[in-house]
Amino acid sequence: MKSSTLKEIKTELQHCSQSELLELCLRLGRFKKENKELLTYLLFEANDENGYIESVKEYIDEQFEEVNTKSYYFIRKSVRKILTNTKKFIRYSKNKETEVELLLYFCKKLKDFRPSIKRSVRLMNVYTRQLAMIEKTVSGLHEDLQYDYQLEIERLGNS
């Protein structure tokens, strides 16, 4: 089955009644965890972006505590999973400030992680790539925010 384009879907949704839209959303939420997470964000957390950021930070903290530190292979695998989930949460928000906040927090946690990531070239590459991505995103923000975030990036990059 070939899926329709977003334009075709949008046109078709405009012809649906409110009850039909409700049924479609509920049905969509049943099929994938990501759909349900996105609906949860849009319905309950989109109005409180700071609360959403804090809840994602708590999730990141929990995940870093559960990392298997027996070898760098397991650490890398866990860090990639945490980063993937963090980026998924960023996609839900579509807010550049949220993206910068969460990626900065991820980098702080990764930098402070023990055993040190400096002993693993791959983990250091993940770290430096995320810092570069943060800098790119910060360049599109308001000047005041750019300054604040730039100080934070320099703190992370220097040490």
Rank of each mutant, 00 (worst) to 15 (best):
T5A: 02
L6N: 06
K7Y: 03
K10V: 04
E12T: 07
L21I: 10
L22E: 11
C25Y: 08
L26Q: 15
L28S: 10
K33Q: 13
K33M: 14
K36D: 14
L38T: 03
T40G: 05
Y41C: 02
L42C: 09
F44H: 10
F44Y: 11
E45A: 01
N47G: 03
D48Q: 10
D48G: 04
Y52G: 03
I53L: 04
I53C: 09
E54V: 13
E54R: 12
E54W: 03
Y59P: 00
I60R: 03
D61H: 08
E65L: 15
V67K: 03
K70W: 09
S78A: 15
K81G: 02
I82H: 07
K87F: 08
I90D: 08
S93E: 05
K94F: 01
E97N: 11
V100R: 01
L103S: 03
Y105D: 01
K109C: 08
K118A: 15
Y127H: 13
T128V: 12
R129W: 10
R129H: 13
R129F: 14
Q130K: 14
L131V: 08
E135Y: 00
S139K: 10
S139Y: 15
G140Q: 04
H142G: 00
E143K: 15
Q146V: 00
D148P: 00
Y149P: 06
E154T: 09
G157D: 08
N158D: 11
